[in-house]
Computed example of a mutant assay.
Amino acid sequence: MASEKDPTSPVTPLAPYPPLPPTESRTRAPEFYGFVAWTSTYLAFFLYLLWALLPDEYLVWLGVTWYPNREWAVLLPAYSIVLVLLTYLTYFALALAGTPDFSDISTITDSKALLPPSASGTPNPYLAHARADAVPELYDIPIGMVNRVLYSSRASDERTYDR
C-alpha cells in the first residue's frame, strides 16, 4: 500500500493538493563550481594579457623563464574566430546538401500524406464529397488541384477536375 510520504505511487498516481513543501536537501556545490569557473576564467585572461603585453624584461623579473612566442597571442584568437566561422559554414553547407531539389516531390509532400485511393475509370474522389450534406473524409489535397483552384483564370474554371 502507498503511504502518505509517497504521493505518486502506482496506487495513488495523483499528487496531493496542496503540493508538499520541498525537502531541504539542497546543496550549494553548483555555486562553488560557478565561482571557481568564473575566477579561473578571469585569472587565465589576466595571465594571457600579461604574457601578450608585458615586455620581456618584466616577465624575467617576475620569474618567468619560458613562455610561448608572442605571435601566438595574435594567432590563437584569429584561429579561434576562423574555427567558429568554419563551423557555421560547415553546418550551413550540410543543410544545403541535405535539402532536396525544387523539382523533387519531397518539397511538396511526404510519405505521411493521406491521399484518396485512385482507381482507373472512377471519378475524382474529391468530387464525391462535394455535396452540401456530405461530410468528407480527411485527405491531403494534391498540389496540382490547389494550384488549379487558386491560380486558374475564369476561362479555365469551366473545365472539370475529373482527372
Results as ranks from 00 to 15, higher is better:
15 A>M: 09
19 P>Q: 12
36 V>P: 00
123 P>H: 09
69 N>Y: 07
140 D>V: 05
161 Y>M: 11
117 P>A: 12
158 E>Y: 03
129 H>Y: 15
56 D>V: 05
130 A>M: 12
52 A>G: 11
46 F>A: 14
157 D>E: 14
70 R>K: 15
2 A>P: 03
80 S>N: 07
72 W>Q: 03
26 R>I: 09
140 D>A: 12
101 D>H: 06
115 L>D: 06
98 G>V: 00
92 F>G: 02
74 V>Q: 07
156 S>C: 01
143 I>F: 15
122 T>F: 13
155 A>K: 09
122 T>M: 14
89 L>A: 15
127 L>F: 09
160 T>F: 12
104 D>L: 07
107 T>Y: 04
49 L>Y: 05
23 T>M: 11
121 G>M: 04
60 V>A: 13
132 A>K: 09
54 L>P: 01
128 A>S: 07
96 L>V: 02
104 D>K: 03
83 L>I: 01
158 E>I: 01
86 L>W: 03
130 A>R: 08
79 Y>L: 15
145 M>G: 01
128 A>R: 04
147 N>A: 08
134 A>G: 00
31 E>D: 04
58 Y>G: 02
65 T>Y: 10
21 P>R: 04
67 Y>F: 12
142 P>T: 11
10 P>D: 08
9 S>Q: 02
17 Y>E: 07
119 A>W: 09
5 K>N: 06
92 F>H: 09
93 A>V: 11
91 Y>N: 01
162 D>A: 09
14 L>H: 03
28 R>H: 10
24 E>M: 06
